[in-house]
């Protein structure tokens, strides 16, 4: 709808933005088409200019014997455009372009996640989307944090007396790649466990709330530390639960 009305320079009040990408195009083309007036040598016929009521069609009436038209005023398609900007409301009502529900131009988006209370910053299209975005965010932040840790380690590592610049840079890069990948990988795996558990709990319970977050955090912490024994698993679960609780509290207050 917005694309069509933008193309013909229609009024922007009836247009509904379908996608934000089209907005810039719309303004540019609307400007273009508003600045251009459609001219023809033939003057507009009187019958088409007078019939501006919305219910009747604005198509030019066929010349009849009762209302003889001047010879030079042949009805053309340009008469419907009125010489100025195109007005969608003057179209034939059957065209239905003004009602705003032109299904052809509605983009068929994927169904968004419909579980109650699961709205977040980015719209989600289901558990795979949650998994990807959550894991990606955590992994990337792990990489950054680990990279800074490694950079600090590489900067402060003793390299003998009078180390060259090349040696120092190599040391920093080594630290970054070692610590960064370690932190990123660990946090990423943790995030995979967490997101899988969270989505499973969401679909089992049918809703998304703080209990799910806490349960998923405990589960993921326990799985992550499960190979080290029962006691470390419990410690990991409690640490993750505390972190998730703090994050939930922070999110609720903000």
């Amino acid at each position: 709808m917005s694309f069509l009305s933008g193309l013909f320079g229609g009024s922007s009040s009836s247009s509904k933005p379908v996608e934000s990408e089209f907005e810039s195009e719309k303004s540019a083309s609307a400007e273009l088409f508003n600045s251009t007036t459609f001219r023809s040598n033939a003057s507009p016929s009187s019958s088409s200019s007078s019939s501006s009521s919305a219910s009747s069609s604005s198509l030019p009436q066929p010349p009849s014997a009762s209302a003889p038209l001047p010879a030079q005023a042949a009805p053309t398609a340009l008469d419907a455009f009125g010489g100025g900007a195109f007005d969608p409301s003057r179209l034939h009502p059957l065209a239905g372009l003004t009602s705003g529900d032109l299904d052809l131009l509605e983009l068929d988006e994927d169904k968004l996640n419909s579980i109650e209370g699961s709205a977040s910053v980015l719209p989600s299209r289901g558990w795979t989307d949650d998994l990807c975005v959550g894991t990606g965010t955590t992994y990337l932040s792990g990489l950054v944090i680990g990279g800074m840790w490694g950079a600090k380690e590489g900067l402060s590592r003793p390299l003998g007396n009078n180390p060259s610049m090349k040696l120092r840079i190599n040391s920093i890069l080594n630290g970054c790649t070692r610590r960064g990948s370690f932190t990123g990988n660990s946090l990423g795996v943790l995030a995979i466990f967490y997101n899988l558990a969270n989505s499973s709990l969401d679909s089992i319970r049918g809703r998304h709330d703080t209990y799910n977050v806490l349960g998923a955090a405990a589960l993921s912490g326990a799985i992550f530390k499960s190979t080290a024994g029962v006691r470390p698993a419990l410690v990991g679960a409690s640490i993750m639960t505390a972190a998730a609780g703090a994050w939930s509290a922070f999110k609720n207050t903000v």
């Binding site: 980015l122 989307d129 959550g134 894991t135 990606g136 992994y139 990337l140 995979i192």
Partner: peptide, 15 residues
């Protein structure tokens, strides 16, 4: 935003 999605998708796939 798709960068985050791809990061996570590729990491999950690999892991």
């Amino acid at each position: 935003y798709v960068i985050l999605n791809d990061f996570g998708g590729a990491f999950s796939m690999g892991a």
